[in-house]
């Protein structure tokens, strides 16, 4: 998905403002998400709405900004709605999925849906690995098949949402340029 980056952020002030808006938006999504039950038979599966922000952010902000937005979002939402343990799971998932999605955005031939699916899958892999590390039990890999498929499904949903929102976001960015 090669996205045209024509001096995407403008002035430093505009860039910081956009970063701030995205952090706020991502936190809101994290919060809303706690109300959406998404039961896959395995505990702890979430839709990953906050990933909308990462997906869309990658289309108009420098990757570093989007990464920091994601990290700040995870830190703040874990402090507000989660606990210390959930912070580690989210960080591992967040970093892995960000790296994966960032790499895919730099390559041709992937749509937002594909990128989001890859992100969702990597997020879940990161979380299982962290959990396996914490309890030092590799048997947790038994949850991987379900979590892989779950990541694919949630990723596709979030990716489709991102695709719907994309034209509107671009329009908004242009009107405030």
């Amino acid at each position: 998905m090669a996205v045209a980056r024509k001096s995407p952020t403008g002035t430093p002030g505009r860039r910081v403002a956009l970063d701030g808006i995205l952090v706020a938006l991502a936190m809101l999504f994290s919060y809303i998400e706690t109300f959406i039950p998404f039961n896959f038979g395995v505990p702890g599966i979430k839709l990953g709405l906050a990933n909308l922000v990462v997906l869309l952010g990658l289309t108009f902000l420098p990757a570093l900004d989007v990464f920091l937005v994601s990290m700040v979002r995870i830190l703040l939402s874990s402090l507000l709605f989660g606990n210390v343990m959930s912070l580690w799971y989210s960080l591992a998932g967040g970093i892995l999925s960000f790296l994966c999605m960032w790499l895919l955005t730099r390559r041709e031939g992937y749509s937002l849906i594909g990128i989001s699916m890859a992100g969702g899958v990597m997020h879940n892999i990161g979380q299982v690995l962290t959990a396996a590390l914490i309890v030092q039990t590799i048997q947790l890999a038994g949850y991987l098949p379900v979590l892989l498929v779950a990541g694919l499904v949630t990723g596709a949903i979030v990716g489709a949402l991102a695709k719907l929102l994309m034209p509107r976001v671009q329009k908004a960015l242009e009107s405030y340029a």
């Binding site: 031939g109 992937y110 749509s111 849906i113 594909g114 699916m117 890859a118 899958v121 991987l144 098949p145 379900v146 892989l148 498929v149 990541g151 694919l152 596709a156």
Partner: peptide
């Protein structure tokens, strides 16, 4: 969805 999207989905399903 593009062609390579299905590649991702296929690879993940295969792995699962």
């Amino acid at each position: 969805m593009k062609k390579k999207d299905f590649l991702i989905a296929g690879a993940v399903l295969l792995l699962a």
